[in-house]
Amino acid sequence: MAKQKLKMIVFYTRAFLPLHICALAMAMAGIRALASPQFNMPGTTLGSLVAETLGGHEWNMFINIDAVTDWLLALLPPLTGLIVYMRSVMGKTLMFSLYRHGSKAKWMTSLQASMLLYTLLLTVLMGLAITFTGFFTGMRGLHVFGLDQSGFYNRIWWPPLFSMFTYAMQSFMLLEIYLFFYLLSGEVSIGLIAFVLPVIFAMLRGSNDELSGSIEWFINWGMSKRYSFSSGEYGVPVKYGILRQVLVNLGLLGLTHTLIPYLPLTERKEP
């Protein structure tokens, strides 16, 4: 039974990931890597390029609209895939699939599970695209140079993976917000606004490291470059950031689940 459910989720995720969405995500990631300031720095490794491209922006008192747009562009590929997918599953396909699930809650569970898998897969694809872009332009090494646990400057391997993880978590959180408002309104435009506005607002309000409250803004939990990894440094503590992201994601999952039985998905004449 569990194997069968897993197969269904894989099927659904495959439906999320048509070739053009994969190509878009990889192209966007490659372009952002090429445009990254890290790209032209001598001695840059593949690992640091990934950490830089998916790691967001440093703390900045005077964050400008370019940085906001850049981060929105970084988050665009998962959103595009979700919009394409939701159009399919919420259209006439819903009529075929909903009764097979047996309830709206079960339908939503499969959708959210595949959305999580999709976000993780898309992040891996983007990470690969950045790595290949760097590799073909002569970069080597999946590590970054940084202070290890004993305080020595050394090769460390986890920062690229950490930046991919925080990026995936933030993408998933924003996709959940999109999904929630889209299901509530039935309008793609409302979902888009619900996705974009929090990013812009949080970036503009929460990027100042001289205001201690900045850590409370969700945008910072999704940018590994705003984390603090050593004592005395200002930034989002690792456990705090990850825990908050996971809790917010769980909260959003719960909220959508609570709401879904009351949403008129099939009552609308043209769902």
Partner: peptide, 26 residues
């Protein structure tokens, strides 16, 4: 059930669409 015009995922084959729907229950 068929209700209105049948809606499938247009980028996939008919076989894949049916497999996807059938995987929900069996």
């Amino acid at each position: 059930l068929i209700l209105d015009t049948p809606g499938f995922l247009p980028q996939f084959t008919g076989q894949f669409n049916l497999e996807l729907l059938m995987s929900i229950r069996g």
